[in-house]
Design a protein around this nucleic acid. Structure first.
Lengths: 73, 73
DNA sequence: GTTTTGGTTATCATAAATGATAAAATAAGT
DNA sequence: ACTTATTTTATCATTTATGATAACCAAAAC
């Protein structure tokens, strides 16, 4: 597995963990972010290399700083 | 100007500032990151919405944490 | 003034993120 | 078991990031 895949898996896990901590459903977060729910599912599964803007919207709607979202990646 | 453009401009400025602090030329950083120098130029100018992997490579080669790269965005 | 050096801009191709939609799988409740 | 909610997976179209290359611009060196 290369660097990129590892990074994708890591951000996916992080989003999922934070979302669940907030007790938010995948579809709810997706809706708030104006992201397709299928897209968010892929992202959480590590199947995509998200853009900064996507990450920002996710952080905003999780009510955390972007720094916190990408911590330890 | 919308959110996305503002974000792009912000990350561009941040990369430029940090790169210059390190006394690194655009082409040097680009080369280290395996990014096209034209691509990095566009990124610093706010003309693109970079992916997480691109940001990670930039942070690594600036020898900073990804959190530090995306601070205050 | 002409070489470097660093940066910008333009163009085109390709890869990949995301949108849009639907179907299938899984979990949770009741 | 049945229903409901949630997530996953698949597919196709569209948009966009990036690669690749080249030409151009500006400033500084010499």
């Amino acid at each position: 597995m290369d660097d990129k895949e590892q990074l994708q898996l890591a951000i996916g896990k992080r989003v999922k963990m934070l979302r669940e901590e907030k007790g938010m459903a995948q579809q709810d977060l997706a809706a708030k972010c104006n992201i397709e729910k299928s897209n968010l599912s892929r992202l959480e599964a590590g199947g995509t290399n998200p853009t900064l803007y996507t990450l920002k919207r996710i952080a905003d709607n999780l009510e955390i700083k972007l720094e916190e979202l990408v911590i330890k990646l």
